[in-house]
Design a protein around this nucleic acid. Structure first.
Lengths: 216, 216
DNA sequence: CTGTCAATATTGTTCAACGATTTAATTCTA
DNA sequence: TAGAATTAAATCGTTGAACAATATTGACAG
């Protein structure tokens, strides 16, 4: 990997590191994160670690219980519904009003192509990642830094939910070609139509995820 | 005021306290916040204060420069445009798809009524606050905790911009009756029409704010 | 088995310290 | 005197230790 960036502050780097472990599933929902244990583990002081905890708590990835510690957030049906509600509002609007030659369209295309290759290799984790890139790029169409940042946050939270679910193929594979269709429609200048397709997509995806979640 | 809530953690309370000072204008944009000075001022440790700083930085209210300290965020035209872009997407969609008997509608009505009273008394600060309550309630129509939280954040950032501008009457007074009209349209079951009116409203408000900002 | 109470562990907060970086002041040179 | 270079002061970044407050555990009595 690349050498760590010592220029930036420690706490955000710690938060990045922990976030990766959360998304990768190394840290499991509900698990308690001991300040003492983690601080010696990561070789940082308790104070620095606590600063990182605050950031992740604000992102919704950790839950803080006073005098008891921080825990990995436990996804629920309610949180999944909440997040999909937001996705429908933000992604569909961003797409509906998009300029077909926006720079983010290139990123959408790149994500679709990468997802196809990963799909051929049955690398479902990569398919999932590229799928996320595709949708983040849709939000980028709205040209709002803050909105993109917010979306990145709820996307991370959603990935936490995905981590709980078995069968990643079922969760991601069917959507590669739907993404492609949406992209084509957008580039053809029919943004409204693409947005309608995306809404259908999201509704279907939500049903799948909730069903899988209900099976736990 | 009420006695302080010692049950909750210190850092969030500090953040609340500082946020109030930011919105009220007690702390002015661009101003540097010394850790040492503020910690003795508020009678807390530097560590606790730093935790509060991180929270507010993540909210966009403070800007952090490595090894130089934190500064009150300086609103810019870019940030105002960014925020209005988000408002159009979120508020209009929330309103367009709203259920006319949603509990948040009552809060909208309360805000309109309070704003009218404040307007009669020429209490423009109160008019502005109630205006914010009205729009936050619109977002609540979408029934998404996360979305409402995010909106609260950008609303705070927008209030920071308002604080820079003179003539609060011009910024808030004209919109009281427009809010009322939107509310009536929604309650009449014409949500789409209300959303269209809101979009016009937001475009006009944005122009006014940007114009005032340009005069600085 | 259940409730009480002490012992233990963990978090919440503060303080002091020190290296690193920025900012201000001072000195030196042309 | 103006400007550049150097030194000194202030501030941040991070750590470690300390102690109070709270939560958990385990022993014990009934």
């Amino acid at each position: 990997m690349a050498e760590q960036d010592t220029t930036s502050a420690l706490a955000p780097r710690l938060a990045d590191s922990i976030r990766d472990k959360l998304i990768s599933g190394e840290l499991k929902p509900g698990q308690r994160l001991s300040e003492a244990a983690l601080s010696t583990d990561l070789d940082v002081s308790r104070n620095s670690l606590r600063e990182a905890f605050r950031l992740l708590t604000k992102e919704g990835l950790l839950r803080h219980e006073p005098n008891r510690g921080v825990f990995v957030a436990t996804p629920s049906m309610a949180s999944i519904i909440d997040i999909y509600r937001i996705r429908k509002i933000i992604e569909c609007q961003a797409l509906a009003k998009a300029y077909p030659k926006h720079p983010a369209v290139a990123r959408m295309r790149g994500a679709v192509e990468s997802a196809r290759k990963a799909s051929e290799n049955s690398d479902w984790a990569a398919v999932g990642s590229q799928n996320m890139v595709f949708h983040a790029s849709i939000v980028d169409l709205a040209d709002s830094q803050r909105l993109s940042g917010f979306y990145a946050q709820i996307a991370a939270e959603l990935r936490l939910s995905f981590g709980l679910l078995a069968n990643p193929e079922l969760l991601h594979a069917p959507y590669v070609e739907m993404n492609f269709a949406i992209l084509e429609t957008l580039e053809a200048g029919r943004a409204e139509e693409a947005a309608a397709a995306l809404e259908t997509y999201l509704a279907q995806s939500e049903r799948t995820v909730l069903a899988a979640f209900g099976r736990l």
